[in-house]
């Protein structure tokens, strides 16, 4: 997946910004996060016979302006859930390796962590999250993360932004070099939360234009 260089990402933060029309699309396939990797026996037995992570793919586009990156993610969801009251919200996340070679399915490890930016339909603020393995997530270093979502015509369009540079335990994205991206999607109307989600089966290479 290519991250095209543009003058400023300010023109891309709106999910419906016209500029996205001329950016290459990459389809990333998703699968249900494996039941066997769910961190507690309760979650495993309670979802054993219950379908989840039914989403098969999401469409991604990405641009950067030398300082920040914007990633547009589009996926089908006929029944949006904003998580009002007791409901579970729809959600999505984009993940990058911090260092080493984290296993995406294992959500990294203490030696090879990963960082993700999470959007939830119930919240205005995006979250930066650091993961060093399943069930280990902690607030991640601030990377100027934002996420804006819009639902229409049976699909969500969410634009994530963050700074390219990341200090400390955060993913540092460098123009002219390659890294990797992984995604996750939660379908709130199916009570999907935590590890009950659709995920990309493995990392997708991400090449940032110089």
């Amino acid at each position: 997946m290519r991250v095209q260089k543009v003058n400023t990402i300010a023109e891309y933060t709106d999910p419906a910004a016209p500029g996205w029309g001329s950016v290459e699309v990459t389809e990333i396939e998703t699968i249900p996060a494996p039941l066997g990797l769910q961190p507690t026996e309760y979650i495993q037995v309670s979802w054993e016979e219950r379908p989840y992570g039914a989403l098969e793919q999401a469409s991604l586009r990405a641009v950067h302006d030398g300082t920040s990156i914007a990633i547009q993610m589009i996926w089908e969801d006929p029944q949006p859930s904003t998580g009002a009251g007791e409901g579970f919200p729809d959600g999505a996340a984009i993940a990058f390796p911090v260092h080493g070679e984290p296993e995406l399915m294992q959500m990294g490890s203490p030696e090879a962590p990963m960082q993700f930016v999470q959007w939830q339909a119930s919240k205005k603020q995006a979250r930066s999250v650091l993961a060093k393995g399943i069930g280990s997530t902690l607030p991640g270093a601030a990377v100027g993360e934002t996420a804006t979502g819009s639902w229409s015509g049976g699909r969500w369009t969410v634009v994530f932004t963050r700074s390219l540079a990341g200090e400390g335990e955060s993913a540092n994205l460098v123009p002219g070099s390659n890294t990797q991206i992984g995604i996750a999607v939660w379908n709130g109307s199916n009570e999907e939360r935590a590890g009950i989600k659709a995920v990309s089966a493995d990392w997708t290479a991400l090449a940032l234009d110089r």
């Binding site: 507690t40 026996e41 309760y42 495993q44 037995v45 309670s46 054993e48 009251g85 007791e86 009570e191």
Partner: peptide
Amino acid sequence: GKAQPGKLPKQ
């Protein structure tokens, strides 16, 4: 000894 599925109680 095995966890059993439960229903989420609503308000």
